[in-house]
Structures are given as C-alpha cells and as structure tokens.
Computed example of a mutant assay.
Amino acid sequence: MGRTEYFHDPAGPRPNRIVTAATAFVLDEQERVLMIQRSDNGM
C-alpha cells in the first residue's frame, strides 16, 4: 500500500511523523541528467 500525501488539505489527517527527503540535479560530462525511478511509488 502506498502512502497518501495530504498537502494543504484541511480535511486530511494530522501528521504523525516527519518524513525526510532530498533532491539533487546531477549532470554528467555530456550534460545528461541522471534520473532514478522511486521504489516506493514507481515515479
């Protein structure tokens, strides 16, 4: 079962934990962008 996000939803449940996250934009020598596919939601 995936996690449901309730960003700015007043009807959403109260948060019960803090989830850490990070973002990076990585280029190689040929200026190609490194991309990944998330294992938790497939995006």
Rank of each mutant, 00 (worst) to 15 (best):
E31G: 07
E5A: 10
E29P: 00
M43A: 14
I18N: 15
Y6Q: 04
D9L: 12
T20A: 13
M1V: 06
E29Q: 09
V33S: 01
V26Q: 08
H8G: 01
R17V: 01
I18S: 15
G12L: 11
R14G: 01
I18F: 15
N41K: 14
V19C: 08
P15A: 13
Q37C: 05
D9C: 13
V26D: 03
A24R: 13
Y6V: 02
D28Q: 05
A24N: 11
F25T: 10
V19K: 13
E5I: 14
F7S: 09
G12M: 11
Y6L: 05
N41P: 01
G12D: 06
F7W: 11
M1W: 06
M43Q: 12
N41H: 12
M43C: 14
F25Y: 08
F25I: 07
E31T: 02
A21L: 01
T20R: 15
I36T: 09
R17S: 12
D9H: 11
Q30D: 09
A21E: 01
T4S: 11
F25C: 06
Y6I: 00
R17I: 00
D40W: 12
P13Q: 03
G2S: 06
R14I: 03
S39T: 10
N16Y: 01
G2D: 15
G2L: 08
G12E: 08
R14H: 05
N16G: 01
M1T: 04
E29D: 09
N16M: 01
D40Y: 13
R14V: 03
G2M: 02
R32D: 05
R17A: 12
T4I: 10
V33G: 00
M43E: 13
M1L: 02
T23G: 02
A22E: 09
